[in-house]
Write a protein that binds this DNA or RNA. Structure first.
Lengths: 361, 361
DNA sequence: AAGTTCATTGACAGCGCTTTCATTCCTCTA
DNA sequence: TAGAGGAATGAAAGCGCTGTCAATGAACTT
């Protein structure tokens, strides 16, 4: 017995070995590669493990194998429903494989993201998953140098650090706006918090669609540098309505903002979609059952988490070999619901080349 | 150099020691107890650490010191906004102290909670924080035997495993219902998913208040064994309205349910609060800006996380000594908003002995 | 000037596990 | 029945760090 810890409550590998009448190595193998041990021995060992309530010491195994079996994850927010689905997928896929997921949030602040990345890297994870693409130069460098698989998610990057799985928020913003334009709207506003690069890109998509359609955008943008929230959605909506009397539709850069905007419309006595059409983004749970139900751009978040985990696992198992495609577009889908409606009173606006026919009358 | 890993990229303590011209122990001390090392040496060591980009190997230090500096946390759901605030507080307090927080979610399933607890315990955390009080017998045993500080949170327990910080959901449910009764309502319904013990207790509080006031409850409970969601809130509300034509008020066991119920009322053309008063629970962000804004029972979640972390830190520093009070009631507060209104038409109901006077006319 | 005290620093022995390689024990073939 | 070949098991040597205790040296006392 050790001099240092006179009372050792936890049993060790060697205790199990002694009880089962085998060597420690055999017990270690019986745990990690059961097929390498005779069924008879395995049974004896399992019994001993159970009787002693043996739990392996991860620190020791990490040290000996230089495998931490840790996956570092940085999300922008723990509060946001968007990341919950993503994290659930990661847990679902990694835990059964014996990996642990360490999650830190950056609260949408690049500096905090850098800190979080450095902190996680200090644990020597076997892979890093970050839920953004706009790392600080130092964070990028840290990730690149780490030598482990790095996945940037949620968003498509021009020059990924390593692997990139996401969707084009610019394209999604463009599509959402096109959808409103094709519904016959011309005075289309946007509300968002462009401090977050994803929202920034959605707004850029909106602007491209508006420009292409030759529509005026002056006074139609409600921006804030505060983080998105339901309250903020209401405030930006009110501002927009006050500035622009003939507003016909609003692209809300995420569902929280859309929810706030919807409530504000109720409050102001503006009927949705009769007077103003509203489209949200992400398609969170409440979008489908709001009143009126919210049209929203669905982003496949669980799917994104799943794909991320699968690729990471593949790389780790394949001793570092990267898959052929390093950049995966997971896409998006517009979920049409009650909050948007065709506007027939005005003459149709000119249609973009790639405009699809709307089925609605 | 090792035979096992011919290419060792990460530098070790001894590399730093060599570069700084001191022994490894001194470097170790310079990192952990800088005050024990001469300023001059400390400077030389810091320089070497920086030059070699040295990052301590946590596995080795855990093994040698038998201190993992890990805090295990089990929450019921990662999706629920309630836990987001709580987790944020834990991160805020633990990270600066050099502890890492490992979070797992049980998805409101007792079996999964047991698994999560076992998994986390396998990491040998220095404390465990669980966001419920109704552990399975085996989970209780595991926690008790672990010998580390265990905090059960969110809810007040009759017989805590160790430390307990929370609030009485029965009392809160009672208070919410009393509030409605004092507003003059008599036909008061409740909607909830009692599979979750907290919702179960809130409903129990509702029942006590109703019983005490001599009010009939038949047909007034909308229950589901599915997890709470906005959609479910709508469904339960519809069921309640169909069953009970003279419904006057509804206690929604959480804000998601309340949001769904509110939307459903809009959909059915039932005006809130003119025809039906609605009260939610937790006071999530959107409650205050809904239309009409939602009266809700505020639960101090960040505060609960802060208190939890402070006590854990204190116990760990004080080498296991428990504080005098092992059970802390963090309380709750009713946030009165637009979704509830006094009902003057009917004669007042009889008042409970301990009923507080309502300030409203 | 010699002894005492205290603050720094270093040597050494593990922490509990895995890796490597050697050994033993089978089973099968000729 | 001997030998080859392969599967199962074990012995030994660390993984990188920290706890313990001994050694060193400087500052102080008498």
């Amino acid at each position: 017995m050790s001099k240092r810890h006179e009372h050792r409550s936890r049993s060790r590998l060697s205790d199990v070995a002694e009880r089962a009448g085998v060597s420690a190595v055999t017990v270690s193998r019986a745990i990690r590669h059961p097929e390498m041990v005779t069924p008879k021995l395995r049974k004896r060992i399992d019994k001993a493990i159970h009787e002693l309530a043996y739990v392996p010491n991860r620190a020791a195994s990490m040290l000996a194998s230089s495998r931490t079996r840790l996956i570092g994850v940085v999300v922008s927010s723990l509060t946001n429903g968007v990341f919950a689905d993503f994290l659930r997928a990661l847990h679902d896929l990694f835990l059964p494989e014996g990996f642990h997921v360490m999650v830190l949030d950056s609260r949408y602040v690049p500096g905090e993201e850098e800190t979080a990345i450095a902190t996680l890297l200090g644990q020597h994870p076997e892979a890093m998953i970050v839920s953004s693409i706009d790392q600080t130069p130092r964070a990028r460098q840290l990730l690149k140098r780490s030598g482990i698989p790095v996945v940037q998610t949620m968003e498509l990057a021009k020059s990924p650090i390593d692997i990139n799985i996401g969707l084009s928020h610019e394209a999604a913003g463009y599509a959402a706006t096109r959808y409103l334009i094709e519904l016959g709207h011309r005075r289309i506003g946007v509300i968002g918090a462009p401090r977050d690069s994803r929202l920034h890109n959605r707004i850029a998509g909106y602007e491209r669609a508006m420009r292409e359609a030759g529509l005026d955008m002056t006074g139609l943008a409600g921006r804030s540098s505060n983080p998105s929230s339901v309250v903020l959605g209401g405030e930006l909506m009110r501002g927009l309505v006050e500035r622009c009397a003939d507003l016909e539709a609003v692209f809300c850069c995420n569902d929280d903002l859309a929810l706030g905007a919807l409530f504000e419309c109720h409050r102001l006595g503006i009927s949705v979609p009769e007077r103003i059409s509203l489209i949200g983004f992400n398609d969170l749970e409440y979008a489908a059952c709001a009143y009126p139900s919210l049209t929203s751009v669905l982003t496949p978040r669980y799917e994104m988490g799943r794909k991320t985990a699968e690729i990471v696992l593949e790389i780790i198992r394949g001793s570092g070999k990267r898959p052929p495609r390093r950049r995966i577009d997971i896409g998006f889908k517009i979920m049409e619901r009650e909050s948007t409606r065709r506007r027939d009173i005005r003459p149709p606006v000119r249609t973009a080349r790639n405009a699809r026919q709307s089925e609605q009358v």
